[in-house]
Amino acid sequence: MTQSNNRKLTIARAMAESVAQEMRTDDRVFVMGEDIGELGGVYGNTRGLLEEFGKERIRDTPISETAFIGAAVGAAQDGMRPVVELMFVDFFGVCFDAIYNLMAKNIYFSGGSLKVPMVLMTSTGGGYSDGGQHSQCLYGTFAHLPGMKVVAPSNAYDAKGLMTAAIRDDSPVVFMYHKRLQGMGWLGTEPGATVKTPEESYTVEIGKAAIARKGSDVTIVSLGLGVHHALKAAEKLSEEGVEAEVVDLRSLVPLDRDTIRESVARTGRLIVVDEDYHSFGVSGEIIASVTEHDISVLKAAPRRVAFPDVPIPFERGMEQFCLPNADKIIAAYREIEAG
């Protein structure tokens, strides 16, 4: 193993490194968004790029998401490979037409004669009292609508490999990164996201989940920050002899249903952890993927630990009450045990 493989990176640095490596080898790749130049991205994921590539290719935009995401679609259709940032996923409300009616549909409307090779990177998640318009995940909203791939890494290794795969993909990819995994101290970062990350360029296949922890008694499926809650819950359960398997989805679209089904077939028990809203979302989809395939593998009713169906409250106690955590996952397992 080379020394570089022992180097640990934050997700923010891993994203920037991937983009820089692609930009060095492909003139068509460029970045645009709000505060991604001089500032290096509010969440650090474009830091250092302006210095290396200059203002033409690292392009600060006006606060005009409809125009610049629409422009990314037009540039992608014209042969460029834009990486465009929607600073907070919550801001999709001002520009969703460019995303789901243009970016996601133009390949289909052209009968496949067009390519739309663009990455829409956007920050997700709460837990730091930013209130109800700056804390959402909205995974299900994006994954629900056809025509865009959706990825959400839980660690720097996956973040770098998924970003490289996303930039090289000829279809639009939504890259959803969780703010509390970015390695930005001021957001109260999760240390488990900062992992060994090779310096050389590599890809992580979009649409392939990972087994983050092996186990035989219960399958905990999650993504992003939820994977770290699941791993902590699994360690506690292990102390009492219960071995949880943790599936890190990494991609929502395409969804790796095979890995989920295979794991639940072995454990017979399923908990889904999702920081997005409880109803009509990712957690329901994961459960349906198992039950509609083969309900007989389940030894108990599946459980979900998700954000209740309320806007995200500001006050710390109220917000933490609503967010998933390791204790809630353990409580869910107790319910399964109780039958």
Binding site: G74, A75, D78, A98
Partner: peptide, 17 residues
């Protein structure tokens, strides 16, 4: 109005290339 953004982006693409 939603053809406007893509047209500006295509124009940007030509300029950059």
């Amino acid at each position: 109005g939603q053809g406007l953004g893509p047209a500006v982006g295509a124009a940007l693409s030509r300029k950059m290339q």
